[in-house]
């Protein structure tokens, strides 16, 4: 579940891009388009094309085995999706996953970064411990955590036995499976938030803390009244990116539970993949994709608006 998105770069400022550029010279159009052509072609074929295909296929009874779009279905696919309980269940599980992962990822990421910054020494070690899992393949993470969650013989149940607790079969229990997926995800991706917070912390001028210390503020008050407010921007960013990433969760669920036990961890993307590849209903899967697409775009747009509002205030 890794694609590049851009949190920090200020996108879309055609106005500022024009500044300082030479006056419009029509002679530049040809070379400009030659430079753009290679990227434009892959962009059209693998981004715009599939998006349009998805929109069109969502209106047809498209199947994998037959070429073309199949018979016209109008809005039937959408109607079907919006009334299917398993579609809503998948959406709800996606929300559930977001609710389970976002608070620990934000709070722990913040705590780790603040403490690492305070302690000062051995930053390389904490980066190794907290950050490295983030760049490893989800498949490795899933194998490691499935093994930890192995019923009875796994590390978790071993620890529970040591503490005199009854063993929890995390991934085999519908009530716990999503918690297990969320725990692995928190372990895997905390490094991203840790690094973003650490970078933001290093931008806070030391003098602020020194001045506060002179005025008698305790370390805790310094964190409460300087660090937390000044990291507000990073927190907003981290939360919104986390929500967008959670809506697109696929790897961990596919690898650790395949949506089970039962349907208890079926999320939006595994549901879409099943509908298309297992049930061979590309049209219906496309309709579900469009709905998910819209939700993600709305949140991404909210993020854009929010960043710009903050930029204007700053």
């Amino acid at each position: 579940m890794t694609t590049l998105t851009t949190p920090r770069i200020n996108v879309a400022r055609p106005g500022s891009a024009k500044r300082g550029a030479p006056q419009a010279r029509p002679r530049q159009s040809r070379p400009a388009w030659l430079f753009l052509a290679p990227f434009a072609i892959v962009y059209l074929v693998f981004l715009i094309g599939p998006t349009l295909y998805m929109l069109v296929a969502s209106l047809f009874n498209t199947s994998l085995v037959k070429s073309g779009f199949g018979s016209f279905a109008g809005l039937a696919n959408y109607g079907e999706m919006l009334t299917r309980p398993d579609f809503w269940a998948a959406m709800w599980h996606t929300v559930q996953f977001t609710l389970y992962t976002t608070p620990p990822l934000v709070i722990l990421g913040f705590v780790m970064a603040v403490l690492t910054n305070r302690v000062g020494r051995g930053q390389w070690f904490f980066r190794l411990a907290f950050f490295v899992p983030f760049i490893l393949p989800s498949a490795s993470i899933a194998l490691i955590w499935q093994f930890i969650f192995t019923p009875n013989t796994g590390l978790l149940n071993g620890l529970q036995a040591l503490l005199g607790l009854a063993p929890t079969a995390v991934l085999a229990n519908p009530a716990w499976a999503m918690v297990g997926v969320a725990a692995a995800t928190v372990w895997w991706t905390i490094g991203f938030n840790f690094i973003l917070y650490l970078a933001a912390l290093q931008d806070i001028p030391r003098e602020l803390y020194e001045a506060a210390a002179v005025d008698g503020a305790s370390p805790w008050q310094q964190i409460r009244f300087i660090t937390i407010p000044l990291l507000g921007r990073t927190t907003t960013l981290v939360v919104l990116l986390q929500i967008i990433a959670s809506l697109k969760i696929f790897d961990q669920v596919y690898l650790m539970t395949s949506g089970g036990p039962g349907q208890s961890t079926q999320v939006a993307l595994t549901f879409i993949a099943n509908t298309a590849f297992t049930s061979d209903r590309v049209g219906a899967a496309s309709a579900a994709s469009v709905l998910l697409f819209i939700v993600i775009l709305l949140i991404a747009a909210a993020r854009e608006l929010f960043t710009r509002a903050q930029d204007r205030k700053a």
Binding site: T3, L47, G49, P50, T51, M54, K248, I272, S286
Partner: peptide, 9 residues
């Protein structure tokens, strides 16, 4: 654009 969502097309 969330590219994962485009996997089917």
């Amino acid at each position: 654009v969330p590219t994962q969502v485009l996997v089917v097309p």
